[in-house]
Design a protein around this nucleic acid. Structure first.
Length: 277
DNA sequence: TCCCAGGCTCTCT
DNA sequence: AGAGAGCATGGG
């Protein structure tokens, strides 16, 4: 992929199969917000603005340390620009139902988000709805995260190290407070290490994450898909269960094998807006 | 007032 | 092993 650096701007030439709205508002991330034609949010500790100019994707570094080469490489990975979605979509479209789901939102990409942030936000997602997840995650950032201009970064593990269960409860996260607390303790205590997950296959990684209280198969699968590049992970929430019952009664088609998680995002989004409860 | 949300834990069979 | 209640909170 051709990339150009202009001051604080990384320009990725001719990016296809990427829609900002569909990608940032499909329920995989909770802290990107639309501002005019662009989206502003954090990718790790970098605050940035993402937009399109013709076919080129523009990613402006608003705040954050590090040279632009490193920034451009990090963002390409975060935005999953190195994955060939044209090829994937063509393969998935061998199945008619998949084809329909893809046509509904052809610009979804699965982001590669930071592990710690994904772990905590998807613990909060449990038996919860997306608007309220956003509210709680924002409250965590506002309360404990580093202030960057008008924004707050998601708190680091160090910033949460000494935060208590009662403190989390004050942010209205309800019964999830004790689970967030346990996750922070296990990460800061070295019981859970991201590097370990890279060596594991899906099943081992899922069991590994399920050591954390409040993390079951669905939350573990989300973490593995959205922050560990385990693209064969297939998180099953209520919407996916509906979709499987009504759209894929015989199970997932073979053409998504190995990339079930990416297919899952198309299916999840399609189900949410097209299936009745 | 009841039902539901990117589910999981605990208890009872 | 499998089914079912309960769970914090807020929106519809």
């Amino acid at each position: 992929m051709e990339t150009e650096i202009r001051d604080d701007l990384a320009v990725y030439k001719n990016v296809r199969d990427f829609d900002l709205e569909q990608t940032f508002n499909c329920g995989q991330c909770f802290r990107w917000n639309r501002e005019g034609d662009s989206f502003v949010g954090f990718a790790g500790s970098w605050l940035c603005r993402v937009s399109f100019e013709g076919g080129d994707m523009l990613v402006e570094k608003l705040r954050g340390e590090g040279d632009m080469q490193r920034f451009a490489a990090y963002m390409a990975d975060y935005l999953s620009l190195n994955v060939d979605y044209s090829a994937l979509k063509e393969r998935f479209s061998e199945d008619e139902t998949m084809k329909r789901a893809i046509a509904f939102a052809p610009g979804i990409r699965v982001l590669n988000q930071p592990f710690f942030e994904t772990l905590i936000t998807f613990i909060i997602s449990r038996n919860n709805n997306i608007p309220r997840i956003k509210k709680i995650v924002d409250a965590m950032a506002d309360t404990y995260g580093t202030s960057v201009g008008a924004y707050h970064a998601f708190p680091s593990r160090q910033q949460l190290k000494d935060v208590g269960v009662e403190d989390y409860s004050r942010l209205k996260m309800g019964f999830r407070a004790k689970y967030v607390y346990d996750a922070v303790q296990k990460v800061t205590g070295g019981v859970i290490k991201r590097e370990e997950i890279e060596k594991m296959d899906l099943d081992s990684a899922r069991k590994y994450l399920m050591q954390i209280k409040g993390v079951g198969p669905k939350v573990a699968d989300c973490i593995l898909l959205f922050s560990c590049k385990k693209y064969d992970s297939f998180p099953k929430d209520v919407w996916i269960n509906r979709a499987m019952d009504r759209l894929f009664p015989d199970g997932l088609p073979r053409c998504v094998k190995g990339r079930e998680g990416i297919a899952q995002q198309y299916i999840f989004h399609y189900a949410r807006f097209n299936l009745e409860k």
